[in-house]
Design a protein around this nucleic acid. Structure first.
Lengths: 315, 315
DNA sequence: CGAACCCGTGGGAACGTTCCCACGGGAACG
DNA sequence: CGTTCCCGTGGGAACGTTCCCACGGGTTCG
């Protein structure tokens, strides 16, 4: 027996060497059947292309391994119906629990599944009881961004919005509240965007064409910040001399020295870890209530933000 | 029965609606046990951070779905021993076949596993019989790059090498052979690198510090090309006016308008699809021999390559 | 010295399917 | 009208584990 029990040392080693010789490997399928537990946690990722999730997955994996579970990843490729099928498959495979990261799934599908197995959701603002939710505090993150820019002396701080994207609404609200709190309510300017590079480019073009050009632009994510960077350069302006620029997410993109974007860091690894722990906790104690876990974002200062020109001239 | 057989329409629909009401879902675990088939193909990815694999996974997924299989992703996070454990788990789960993408695994581990289930390996140059191998033709890709640059009139074309990285050796050989073929053997210049942004930066700095500065730099991958781009700008030079620059892989990075890198495209989606088809083929016909599948790369011209300055002055 | 106890081993049931076989009834043919 | 054939249904075995219970032999205690 490999399960380790009260077996004499002699017979154990005999069995073990025999197993070795025969290339025997315990059949997890049969074990799962009789134990009615698979020790698998299904992970649904909306989009593997998004580097954001890679680090979340790291956290998920390490937490699962530590607690004696396996993480099984699937994706629906941003297609809600494919995601629903993938979810169904995970359920057929009798995953003990589910983590859903960046789901485009209808909330009702999640709710239905949550009646079968414990579920944790990452980076989504859906509020279901019976489902753990792990998010970073996007509202606070946006506030950090505004505080950083305002602290440098900027007043005319525009936001490139994220539209329907995950967390976009919170970031917008955070921007607004921080602007008001800093006494800059009259400067609030929200330009539509969609979390893509192209969207950021277009939004920045519109902002730069205004009569009163913003001295700082806060893009709702790094992707759109890179688009904005392009528009700024194209207009013959330099970052951060003429315009300060911030992103959000601290993706690998932002860290490229060629871009070196000041941004807001989300503790992605920790988010994944937390989500996995939350699910496993409820797998092992099904009566435990689901919770909402909010993680603190951090400001990462790089080379795209500086004092506004007017102030610099003075100093 | 959901398996669809010779059942009267009446009883079928009765069963189906009953199943619906009770929330019944076929238990894939039990089915796997009795069928001795799981219809799962395990996928081992070395690194989920590498966007390269994301598209490969897309191809893997769609091919699996099409053929009635599930793809189950795991990763060892670039840690060989963790990868071995992950492989073992996949085997315990009784995956019908395995796809290994960018493995750092010891070849013997792969060989041992290949005696149990069919395996396909992606982007690795290990040559095991009994294992399908799917690669793009890196040698040819590097030739394409050199031919493009030479075609523009460049002679002094330096390579930033990829060291031990996957495909680096083939790319180096392709560079050398194409240079010779173009009559540029005397200009061959190989600068050490390691496929990272930092490595590309350092390598480019060394190249630019040479007495005879290259007019074109071919970096072995996009990542190191972006590093090189930075070094070039830092030296007060412009791309492509002063130096032409190429990458390899056509990652999302290269497509950013801010970078807009001329590069070599690997058919990643197709690579994944091919690997999955190869495994499933051998799952269903275990006697079939493993093959080596080589896919053709393509040149993608963007904005970092142009005629050398000397030629432009003339025209 | 006998009884109780305990450690270690072996056997059997159960998990939820699928597959195969046998059986029953109705239709078609002789 | 009887026999044969076929379609559809129902029952039982098997897949490879784990868990539980019973049993056997040795040790300890009364």
């Amino acid at each position: 027996m490999r399960g380790e029990r009260s077996v004499s040392e002699a017979s154990r080693s005999a069995v073990l060497t025999a197993a070795e010789e025969l290339g025997y490997r315990a059949n997890a399928v049969a074990r799962s059947l009789v134990q009615r537990r698979t020790y698998n946690v299904g992970v649904m990722v909306s989009d593997l292309h998004n580097i954001f999730f890679a680090e979340v997955l790291d956290g998920l994996y390490s937490a699962a391994a530590e607690l004696g579970y396996r993480a099984l990843i699937t994706t629906g490729n941003r297609d809600p119906s494919a995601e629903e099928r993938a979810l169904d498959q995970l359920l057929e495979l009798r995953a003990d629990g589910l983590v859903i990261a960046g789901a485009r799934l209808p909330a009702e599908a999640v709710a239905a599944a949550s009646r079968i197995v414990p579920i944790a959701v990452v980076g989504s603002n859906l509020r279901l009881d019976n489902v753990d939710v792990v998010v970073d505090d996007d509202h606070r993150g946006a506030e950090l961004a505004v505080e950083h820019l305002a602290g440098l002396g900027h007043k005319d701080i525009a936001l490139i919005d994220g539209g329907q994207g995950a967390g976009a609404a919170e970031r917008r609200a955070g921007y607004q509240s921080a602007m008001s709190r800093a006494g800059l309510a009259e400067w609030i300017l929200i330009e539509p965007g969609d979390f893509t590079e192209g969207g950021g480019y277009e939004a920045a073009r519109r902002l730069l064409a205004r009569r009163r050009r913003p001295t700082a632009i806060f893009a709702s994510n790094d992707q759109s910040a890179v688009g904005a960077l392009d528009a700024i350069n194209e207009a013959g302006l330099q970052v951060p001399r003429d315009v300060s620029l911030m992103g959000y997410d601290n993706t690998a993109l932002a860290a490229l020295r060629h871009i070196s974007l000041t941004t807001i860091h989300q503790p992605r690894n920790q988010i994944g870890e937390m989500a996995m722990r939350a699910v496993i906790r409820r797998i092992e104690k099904p009566t435990a209530p689901a919770r909402r876990h909010v993680l603190a974002p951090e400001l990462v200062v790089r080379d795209t933000t500086a004092k506004p020109q007017a102030l610099r001239a003075k100093s």
